[in-house]
Design a protein around this nucleic acid. Structure first.
Lengths: 342, 342
DNA sequence: CTTCCGTGCTGAACCGGTTGTGCATCGTGA
DNA sequence: TCACGATGCACAACCGGTTCAGCACGGAAG
């Protein structure tokens, strides 16, 4: 009776068998009202809490969900997606007695796969949330082979069976392009993130579609890698073009801010000479100069919807429909009408 | 034999009892070399992995560590500590077959305590890592009552029994003050973070000690709350002082960047009129204008040392000594000699 | 040839829950 | 009055590991 009380302690204190206690607490078996009351009272008095370990062993469930994040070291501290997404996931999970086993990995794909194996093969989780989907992603096959439920964060391009909770990247890009086109911009360029990730590809396609829809010429796309360094390089490359683009859409805020600094260094004024938009929002964005116009996504909500979906999969509910979030453009100071033609 | 193979499957395939398999795999019992080889081969062939659930049940261990983070919504996306710390913890834990159960909470102290209860009372973890220690922190008593090992991240001021892995905040502040004093500053102010957190108090004391050591007058301390908003307000308040401070130390990068923007808005130039230093570093810091001078801490290392310490506590090793990290000042563009007296 | 000990393995109990089966007991209807 | 079903609970098996006690066997010592 030292340490946490067990179901046996409760049974003994209440003068019943441990199965009676289990029935009383779960409400599943046939149990007398009076006995149930007594058991509940005793359990509360002893401060009994079920051991998730033991419960999991008999039900072959862990009541835990796994999540692996992989980021290069330069990005791990600046990513405005990571923390609120986890927070959203956990808020939802904890309401349903699930825990989150997360694994954050600094490094590349090899370590990431290893992270998956670790969580899955130890039998620690009932399901996985997959982020940063790549075009052809080995994890999907891996999890399907293992019979492990999963939910994709961001819809894969190929029709992958299994549910996805995604942001409408296409709408985000379109909103950015429309905003710039409304201001009068005709030459809009993009500095993309990793093209290996599905949302990178999706954004690039959406970019060209949105330009075409406004009757604008195909814009230049400079590949980036989400780091500040590559943002500055992207800006540099675009400023050398002739004719120079008058507006640039960056895949994330860090690249956009670094790009703006590079522009300033070259004597190019934002937004007078060139407008800048970022495709994610960041708490720092309002405070840089000029304040950064950005597409804002409710990442907390995204996380909680992902959690809800993976729990539904685990409970074996019929395929839930894909969930699609939409983002919202927040106009700040980094966008303005283009400079008059020289 | 569907689903994951169990130890019974291995035993049957190898033609031995399941206890023999357990001994062979753990290397603890008396087992013949030939039998051990055969069991290991069969286990590898079947792809057997031990179930952490079952293992935990008999050893009354979970092989998991808990970590609760609580942040206001405005900070959750901008905190450069959160993600690399988790990454460091997990890198270390995963090498030792431990998993991390993290819980990120958007909100206040009440939800935070609830988060602790959830992880601890379900018997899901063997130990806890405590961050954001407050001056008198209820969690320490809670965990001690439960007999749950813990490690404090940041040394509590009172001599709390139990190990701590802390950054030498005092040295960070001193480095910042010395740098500014070396440049010739005489009126140095500070915009602090939450004073309820122990490192807030520690930094404030260290600030006054460092100033005194350089023979400078006591500097003004404006209380902040780590948000950009409060950074701007702090800058505003300090610029109204007469005589105006010539250098300001902000508790974090977000406040510093917001403060610099506010200064620019008022026509005050950084660093010509006022120098700015942040007490944490951020991947964005090099890319704002002017680039932000900051105290850089190896947060990844901090995390892995914390993980190592909590594992040592769980394994019952004699009290490990406190670990203290030191930070390093990274001088960028936001600090310069003070303006000549008017 | 017996005694004794070390080796190598098996059987069983146990961790803390869940769940199926079975045995009293009671109330009801014929 | 007896058969019968429903109710309320106890017993035991099981999930997948760990670990203790004990048995059979072999070699060495007396």
């Amino acid at each position: 009776m030292q340490g946490r009380p067990t179901i046996n302690d409760v049974a003994q204190a209440a003068g019943v068998s441990k199965s009676a206690v289990s029935y009383a607490l779960s409400g599943r078996g046939r149990i007398g009202a009076e006995t149930r009351e007594r058991v509940l009272a005793v359990a509360a008095e002893l401060g009994w809490q079920p051991s998730q370990q033991a419960r999991g062993l008999s039900s072959s469930r862990t009541y835990a969900v796994g999540l692996v994040f992989a980021r290069p070291a330069e990005l791990i501290g600046a990513d405005p997606f990571f923390a609120p997404f986890i927070a959203g996931v956990e808020a939802e999970l904890s309401h349903h007695k699930y825990a989150l086993l997360s694994q954050v990995i600094v490094g590349g794909e090899a370590e990431e796969e290893e992270g998956y194996r670790r969580l899955v093969s130890g039998g620690r989780v009932d399901g996985m949330i997959l982020t940063d989907l790549r075009d052809i992603d080995p994890r999907i096959g891996l999890l399907r082979d293992l019979g492990m439920p999963y939910v994709a964060v961001g819809r894969p391009m190929q029709a992958i069976d299994g549910p996805a909770v995604s942001n409408d990247d296409s709408a985000s890009v379109t909103a950015a392009v429309d905003h710039l086109a409304d201001l009068g911009h005709q030459r809009i360029a993009q500095v993309s993130g990793s093209r290996a990730l599905v949302h990178g590809l999706e954004r690039e396609r959406a970019f060209h579609r949105a330009l075409a829809a406004r009757g604008l010429y195909a814009g230049t796309v400079i590949p980036g890698d989400f780091t500040g360094q590559s943002g500055a390089e992207g800006m540099c490359a675009l400023l050398e073009l002739s004719p120079r683009p008058t507006a640039i859409i960056f895949a994330n805020g860090l690249m956009a801010i670094a790009g703006m600094q590079e522009a300033a260094r070259q004597g190019v004024s934002v937004p007078a000479d060139v407008s800048v938009v970022a495709l994610d929002d960041n708490p720092i964005a309002p405070f840089v100069t000029p304040a950064l116009t950005a597409v804002h996504t409710d990442v907390l909500l995204w996380g909680s919807l992902s959690a809800r979906t993976i729990m539904a999969c685990i409970e074996g509910e019929p395929d839930t429909a894909d969930v699609v979030l939409t983002s919202e453009l927040v106009v700040r100071g980094s966008t303005a009408p283009p400079p008059p033609p020289a």
